[in-house]
Design a protein around this nucleic acid. Structure first.
Lengths: 187, 187
DNA sequence: GTCGCCGATGTCAGTCACTGACATATGGCG
DNA sequence: CGCCATATGTCAGTGACTGACATCGGCGAC
């Protein structure tokens, strides 16, 4: 049925990002996106649970990459070191995706509804990290706290890197890790 | 116009919580809540921007209390100590509100749409803390990282306290602060 | 090759969240 | 008493999302 090499999902995602950027998230209807991708509104909602979700496929990819990297991390230096090892492992992917994530982030951070969804995805990522840490033997509550603190650092580093690309993400992560130690040590 | 001691906003909030708990968030319409409170649907949306918002008045109160406490915190021991000072200052309020927040949290944490909004409120709180720290002279980026790490700890402690009230919130906060130090120090 | 099955899509009707415009009522105040 | 501001009611409309059912296109069984 569907034409054009059949990547309906991808076509919907690209159409959505283009339209949202051109006229804003609120002023773009799901029917418009579907039409732009050559399908009907109903098909849009068969591929994505809601209008926001069309922009958030990448979080699943990141989750898989992080949990895989966490499974391989050495555990000699404690949970936080394991987390930062996993973060380091995914920096190349993020660096490669910058041309896409830069406009994406510009849109998401300035649209309240999308920002809210983005926070939910981050929370889901945090949960995944918590479970991965537990799978590596970290006690439940320690794992949850470490994942929260780790994700806070990771998100913070990524935001700083998006705002100012002069410093590569890996170095940002290193800086943040040191800064966190300095903050917490100050008692 | 409005009857019954005129606390329309409060009546809507109570009606919403009751109905959501009784039949679920999705299966409760805004018109139903309004009817239960003795007003029309249109009035509901004049008091609350959307159907979820009716459950989240408390976050503004908490934000004011935290920023006020942060403005009074001694700054000799660094930003994290200031944050935990502020957290400690609001524990009595949270302890007093437990009878309300317990069923509230039960509902919010099991309803995806409400959980998502809750995360957005936490993020707004984090931003408020960041600005308060900056107002106290903490450099911008340090303030942002500290606020994130601090909120992660605060939320984590509160969740643990909600799940198991045997330990008071203030002690939970103390435990978490120590645990965070242990986690970050392990290099 | 054709038949029949299955997954993806189209079509249609319906519900409900939310909004703008306008009418109306209430309570205070000169 | 009449005026005014504010809260509410009324009504019509848009758009997100869903369920039910029809259709289409490919693909393996035979």
């Amino acid at each position: 049925m569907a034409r054009l090499q059949d990547d309906v999902r991808g076509r919907l995602q690209r159409a959505a990002l283009d339209l949202f950027r051109a006229q804003g998230f609120e002023r773009t209807t799901a029917a418009e996106i579907a039409a732009e991708a050559g399908v009907t509104e109903r098909t849009f909602f068969r591929h994505f649970a809601d209008k926001r979700e069309v922009l958030f496929d990448g979080e699943a990819v990141l989750r898989d990459a992080l949990t895989a990297a966490l499974a391989d991390a050495p555990d000699a230096e404690g949970p936080m070191a394991m987390l930062f090892h996993a973060f380091d492992a995914v920096t190349p992917v993020l660096e490669a995706n910058r041309p896409f994530s830069e406009p994406w982030h510009q849109l998401v951070s300035t649209t309240p509804a999308l920002h809210e969804r983005s926070l939910a995805k981050t929370a889901a990522l945090t949960d995944a990290l918590t479970m991965s840490l537990q799978a590596r033997g970290v006690p439940e509550h320690r794992a949850a706290l470490a994942a929260r603190a780790g994700m806070a650092s990771f998100v913070y580093a990524t935001l700083a890197w998006l705002e100012d690309p002069k410093l590569p993400l890996a170095e940002r992560l290193d800086l943040v890790q040191r800064e966190l130690k300095a903050l917490v040590r100050a008692d």
